[in-house]
Structure formats: C-alpha cells, structure tokens
C-alpha cells in the first residue's frame, strides 16, 4: 500500500517535519505584480501624452487640411480675414529668428563652456557657473520684457525703425539659449577623460592647441547635441519672441522690419480666432510638434552614436 502511494506524495515525503522554504505566497506575488503594473502605467503615461498631444492637435487641425488643402496651408499668404491660411511666411520667420539666434548664441554658449571647463581658475568657475544656472532659470517672459524695453529701443535707434523684428529677436533668443548650450557643453567637456588633455600638454601643445585639436573634436557629438537642443528651444519659444518681433505675418524687407513666427502667431490669434482660422492655428501647432519631436529624434540618434 505505502509503496503505491509514494509517487503521489513524494514532495511531502522528502521533507518531513523540517520547515520548508515557503513558496511565494499568492498575495505577495499579486501585490508586487500589481505595483509593477501601476509603475509601468505611470511611465507609459509619457507615451500616452505625446500620442494624445499629436492626435488631439491634429484632430483640431483637420478642417484646415481637408478644407483648404496642404498646398494652400504651405503657401505664403497669411490673411485669415480673407480665408488665406498659408504658413510659409511664419515658418520662414521661425527659421530666420532661430538661425540668427544660433549664430549669436552658439559661439557665446560654447565659448563660455570651454572657458569654464578648460581655462578658468576654480574661483572664477565657482562664481560664473551658478550665474549660468540662474540664467537658465529666468522665465522667458522676463527675457521678452527685457528685450522689449531695453534691446528694442536700442535696435530702433540703430536701424531707424520701431525696433520690432528679427534682429531684436536674435539678441533675446541668443541670450535665452546660451544657458542651455553652455550647460550641455560643460557636460560634454567634463565627460572627456583628463588623460588625453595631459597627453596633449605633455606633447608640448599650448592650451589653445589642446582645446581645438584634442578637446573640441573629442566632444564634438556632445556639442552638436547641445546646439540641437538650443535650436529646439529657440524654435519653440513663444512669449519672448511675441514681444519683440512686431507680429507681421509677411516675408520681411529687412532684419529690422516686423515679422511673425509660428509660435507668436498662435499666441496672438488664439484669443479671437474661430472656425477655420482656429483650425489653422492647431495646424501650426502640429508643424511645431513635428519639428521638436524630430530634433529630439536627432539628439537621440547622436547619443546612440556616442555610446
């Protein structure tokens, strides 16, 4: 009899009386699993949000795509009162202020970072680094305000106009993107091993030779990263631009005549727009969203390459 029963109760027979190693209890297992799913849901919320932003903005923009068509949407005439919703001059405006801001901001930002990491004494570094951090914290509305009351009159005197236009926006945006570019470039420079700097100095290179022959090439990708993110910041900036560009949705005659950008036009028109006009604003939002997502994609590709 016993011999026949053994196979069925094998497990119990092998460990008589002694305390068994507990199997994972069902409640603990469920609790841990449930928590894990909650955490996952929270993390996945970021994905959901990005999709929602795209879908919702596109949905609100649909009328402008279907009613007037993509060709007219990407034409040059922006005149809502006459049902013309061409965004090219606004896109050009955004491009113009961004390129100018980068041309001024990149040398300043990268130069500041190189000075702080490679050249400055510890004492100077301790003074300037926090200043750059604080500069990054100042809200864009204050930059816009500053640009409007200080830089604009200055440009007006210089060029003889009102001072609203791309040139003023360049100054304001350049100041705004410097902290972004500087902070990220500092990270890139700090990630270069000290050893290759020493090697360069030991070969009899001067500081400048070390910087441009060894340090900058080694930090190249990180600096490109910084510039792309600075670019994203410049394209997406709304309030500071709104306050200084003059808001004329045309291709400008000069860099000191009023223009408009995608962001500033949205902010300006949202309060009174309706129907197709409002839908066009959402269409511009979609364009901005795609640009910024593409820039982030570029940065991620670069980061992968950096390893």
């Amino acid at each position: 009899m016993e011999a026949q029963e053994t196979p069925q109760i094998e497990q119990e027979a092998q460990t008589p009386k002694k305390r068994e190693l507990a199997l994972v209890s069902r409640s603990t297992y469920l609790k841990e699993k449930a928590l894990q799913w909650i955490f996952f849901a929270c993390a996945f919320l970021a994905v959901v949000t990005v999709i929602l932003i795209f879908v919702f903005t596109t949905y609100s923009a649909l009328p402008v795509f279907t009613d007037i068509g993509l060709a007219d949407f990407f034409s040059f005439t922006w005149a809502p009162s006459e049902d013309h919703y061409g965004i090219m001059s606004l896109l050009a405006g955004s491009g113009l202020v961004t390129v100018g801001a980068l041309a001024m901001g990149v040398p300043l930002g990268v130069g500041t970072a190189v000075y702080l990491v490679e050249i400055a004494s510890k004492r100077v570094r301790r003074l300037i680094s926090p200043a750059v951090d604080l500069l990054a914290g100042i809200p864009s509305i204050i930059y816009g305000f500053f640009g409007m009351v200080i830089i604009r009159p200055f440009i007006a005197q210089l060029t003889g106009g009102l001072g609203f236009g791309a040139l003023t926006a360049w100054f304001v945006l350049a100041i705004m993107i410097v902290p972004t570019i500087t902070t990220l470039t500092i990270d890139a420079l700090n990630s270069i091993p000290m050893g290759i700097r020493e090697a360069s100095y030991a070969m009899g290179a001067t500081k400048w030779q070390t910087i441009y022959k060894v340090v900058l090439p080694a930090a190249k990708l990180g600096i490109v990263d910084a510039i792309v993110l600075g670019m994203g910041r410049a394209i997406g900036e709304t309030m500071a631009v709104l306050m200084v560009v003059g808001n004329a949705p045309v291709i400008p005659d000069s860099i000191s005549s009023p223009i408009s950008t995608l962001t500033s036009q949205i902010a300006l028109d949202m309060s009174y727009s309706s129907g197709l006009h409002r839908s066009a604003l959402f269409g511009m939002g979609v364009v901005l969203f795609i640009i910024s997502a593409a820039l982030v994609g570029i940065v991620r590709l670069i980061s992968k390459k950096r390893g």
Binding site: G195, A199, S200, A202, M203, G204, A218
Partner: peptide, 20 residues
C-alpha cells in the same frame, strides 16, 4: 613650459591615445 614639454616627453600610467 610648452617648449620644455616638447623636449621632455611623457608616457602615462593609463594609455591615453587621442580619440583620433
């Protein structure tokens, strides 16, 4: 010191080739 270092070469504990 830059000129001095051209006459006095140095090899370090950790090999440190440039990323070139």
């Amino acid at each position: 010191p830059v000129d001095l270092r051209r006459r006095v070469g140095m090899i370090f504990q950790q090999p440190n080739p440039f990323p070139k």
